[in-house]
Each structure stands twice: as C-alpha cells, then as structure tokens.
C-alpha cells in the first residue's frame, strides 16, 4: 500500500484548472518532491491531500484512508508545514510547542518528552523562553517543523518549506528532513529550489496543473538520452538565441541566465557547428561547451516539449513554442 496516493485528482477554480487529473503514488519512507513553477498546482495538490481543500474530482488517500471520507483520521496521521511559518509570533518557543502538543492531544509525560525532543531537533535548547517573533528565519522554520511533527506523523507535507531562508539554514533543515525519512516518515515536499530536489528520491514535475514527468533524478535526465546539452556564452545573447532557434540542427534553445543552453543530437558536432555559426555572424568572443544536463535543463526541456505538443496545430510549426521561456526557476 502506498503511503500517499492520488487518483485522477482535480481542482478547478471557476474555469481555471489548478490541478488536472493527477495520479501519483508515494511509497512509505520516500522523500517525494513536487516540482513546478509558481502556479503549477503543487500547493493545491498538498492542500487537497491534507483536507484543507475539497477536490473537484478524483480521490486522495493517506495510508489507505480516503481524505474525503475520514478527514479526521487523515489529520491524525499527517504533519503539515508551509512556507509561511504558521507559528504564533506572540508566544514563546515553549508556549508554541505546548499549544500544538495540546491540540494534537498530547499530555503529561509524553508531551514533555516530545517537547524536549522537538527542542533538541530544532537546535533551540536554551531558547525556549524567547518570543517566537524575535527568532531568525531559519530557527522559526525549524520550530515550525518541530511543531508539525510533535505527534509523530507517518506522513509529512512540506509546502515550500525553505522559502526566504538562507542557504546554511536550508542545509540544516534538509538534514532534519533526511533524518526523519530514515526513521520511516514519508515526506512530500514542494519546492522551486532545484538543488533541493536532489534530496528527493523521486520527483514529480508539474506544469499548468498537470503531471508532465515523474521519476528519480537520473530517470528524469534520461530525456536527454541520445542527445546532448551544450552551453553557449557570447556577447549578443538574444541575437544568438534567434539564430539557434531557426537552425535545423538545434533541437531546442533556451535562455539560462546570461547563457544559452542548446539541445543537440550530438555533443561534438553540435559544439563545432554552434561555434562556426557564432563566428560567422561576428558574435564573438564566444564559448561553447558540452555540459552535464542539470535538473533545470530537464525541467525546461520537459515543459517546452509539453507546451509544444499541446499547442501544436494552433501555431505555425516553424515557431518553437515557448522556447523563449526565461529560466523558470531562480
């Protein structure tokens, strides 16, 4: 039995389809990442599984329990933490922990134990009487996590948990997550930091409410099998982008910050041809190198393929739909 499962899960807000026919199964003890740009529907999925939002169609199950049928039972089994630290800023660290312990029905010795555990996990020893408002972002976030897992949930949902937190705090936060996963907690996390996705055993890529790809990081990178990605830097970037987009040997060209990434059938040939093209148009000094595709390349490639297949027929075939997409990710 999957720890979390959705079957044809959908949510519409009026005419807008926020989530469109999503079917996923997350195994017990897995760290599962939901990736996608803003508005892709990641949070909506989590909110439906947690019972915060009623689906327009389909079902969501947590450890076999249907959320629509028995939301209370589901709530007992899950923990939930959002990017907006949902703590009481006007209470101390200890009072927040006591309160959340209380609403989860913990008491007496067990509450004391869990509270001590949470404080040590979050590295907040000696800070119990500080006002939550006065804590730095990274600490608040660890406290929020501690509050969300006080009742030892079997499944933990993290909705963009590291938004607005510095890199060092993000790393120590992920260490906590990895540790919990080792203890058998199933973790479903949404993020748009692609480096964080490397912590996930499996990833689901979402775009415009739909699941467009799912698998381990290396499985996802398979989309480039038989092709190569080369990176181009040159003085006139947009001119080059235009050039490569129209070139038949280039399967895909996209802007990556101050560089271009090109998808080509072969690394060696591609590199040579690209350099020639740039030199011929006087767009020099230019640098062209084959690179190992990152998750970001996968992400953009998959979205572009998806968009292209969806808009095909509506647009002229010469136009590579969506290839001018800026880096969709920070």
């Amino acid at each position: 039995m999957a720890a979390v499962e959705t079957r044809h899960l959908s949510k519409s807000f009026g005419a807008f389809k926020a989530v469109d026919d999503l079917t996923i199964a997350v195994e017990e003890g897995e760290v599962f990442g939901l990736l996608g740009s803003n508005g892709a529907g990641k949070s909506t999925v989590i909110r439906m599984i947690c019972g915060l939002l009623a689906p327009s169609g389909g079902t969501a199950l947590v450890e076999g329990v249907d959320v629509a049928r028995d939301p209370e039972e589901v709530k007992r089994r899950i923990g939930y933490m959002t990017q907006r630290f949902s703590l009481y800023e006007d209470l101390t660290v200890r009072q927040n922990l006591r309160f959340f312990g209380g609403v989860y029905g913990l008491r007496g010795v067990i509450l004391d134990q869990r509270q001590a555990w949470a404080v040590s996990q979050a590295g907040l020893e000696g800070k119990e009487d500080l006002m939550t408002r006065s804590l730095p972002g990274g600490w608040k976030q660890r406290l929020a996590l501690a509050c969300a897992v006080l009742h030892r949930p079997k499944v933990l949902f993290l909705d963009e948990p590291t938004g607005g937190v510095d890199p060092i705090s993000r790393r120590s936060f992920w260490n906590l997550i990895d540790k919990m996963a080792e203890e058998g907690v199933t973790i479903i996390v949404t993020t748009h930091y692609l480096d964080e996705a490397e912590h996930c055993r499996r990833i689901a890529l979402m775009h415009a409410g739909r699941l467009i790809s799912m698998g381990t990081v290396s499985q996802l990178k398979q989309v480039f099998a038989g092709r190569a990605v080369i990176e181009v830097s040159c003085p006139r970037l947009f001119e080059a982008l235009d050039l490569f987009e129209r070139h038949e040997d280039v399967l895909e060209a996209s802007l990556f910050g101050s560089r271009l990434h090109l998808v080509v059938p072969d690394a060696g040939t591609g590199q040579r041809r690209a350099l020639e093209l740039l030199q011929r148009s006087g767009n020099v000094p230019a640098r062209v190198e084959p690179i190992v595709p990152s998750l970001e390349d996968v992400f953009i490639h998959t979205i572009e393929t998806e968009e292209a297949s969806r808009t095909r027929g509506e647009q002229k075939p010469t136009e590579k739909a969506g290839s001018r997409v800026q880096r969709g990710v920070p």
């Binding site: 947690c50 019972g51 915060l52 209370e72 709530k75 007992r76 899950i78 923990g79 939930y80 959002t82 907006r84 949902s86 703590l87 009481y88 800023e89 959340f100 609403v103 989860y104 029905g105 509050c147 969300a148 009742h151």
Partner: peptide, 14 residues
Amino acid sequence: ERGTMEQLRVTSLR
C-alpha cells in the same frame, strides 16, 4: 490573516 488557522485546520483539533 496570519495563516495559523490553516495550521490549526490540519491538526486533529475539531
């Protein structure tokens, strides 16, 4: 306003 209501709604607090 502060989003704590949502946090409360995922707890088993009725």
